[in-house]
């Protein structure tokens, strides 16, 4: 193969790779490979793999809690309703968990709320989102973070937000 050919082949390969990436990205946008908030209970296993943690499941009145503890001290709890939906998540630890994974399709709202807080004329403070479709609170400081998020419409009957910790 002469040099020109190899350049052309390389360009073609690059196009193919680019198209593959674009296709994969668009597929991911249609059906994210994420578990977490708002997803089915089966996504807890995906999250466990992602967070590389040990899983402990406990049953409470009206819901099931899946607790994933990773080696670096981050604890994530996913609250699953009787209908099989992750209606709430909570986290604590020296760092934030992978919020994109944990909040799934709600991650963008989290990101926007942070940006909005920085755009306003104020500095650092706890983060609060209170929207009809999402309630999120995040607080703490370097080496000690804590937060929770839930979907009000998915809260099982009789379950109060205070139980999500």
């Amino acid at each position: 193969m002469d040099k020109r050919m190899s350049v052309r082949a390389c360009a073609a390969r690059a196009r193919l790779i680019f198209l593959s990436i674009a296709l994969c990205t668009s597929l991911m946008l249609v059906r994210p490979a994420f578990g977490g908030l708002g997803d089915d209970a089966s996504s807890v296993q995906v999250d466990q793999l992602h967070f590389r943690g040990s899983l402990r499941t406990t049953h409470s009145d009206g819901y099931t809690v899946h607790e994933i503890e990773s080696g670096n001290g981050i604890i994530v709890r996913e609250y699953v309703s009787p209908s099989g939906k992750v209606f709430a998540v909570a986290w604590q630890g020296p760092w934030l968990p992978d919020m994109r994974q944990l909040l799934s399709t709600y991650f963008q709202q989290y990101q926007q709320a942070q940006q909005q807080q920085m755009n306003s004329h104020t500095g650092r403070k706890p983060l609060a989102i209170r929207q009809p479709g999402l309630v999120l609170q995040s607080g703490g400081h370097m080496r000690a973070f804590k937060g929770r998020a839930y979907i009000p419409d998915l809260l099982p009957a009789g379950v109060t937000p205070e139980e999500i910790q």
Binding site: P126, A128, G139, G140, G147
Partner: peptide, 21 residues
């Protein structure tokens, strides 16, 4: 007001008790 020094500015901190800023 739109001042930088606001000794009475406060808000909720739902899960971590008090954040004394």
């Amino acid at each position: 007001p739109d001042d930088a020094v606001l000794g009475q500015l406060a808000g909720p901190n739902t899960l971590s008790g008090f954040d004394w800023g």
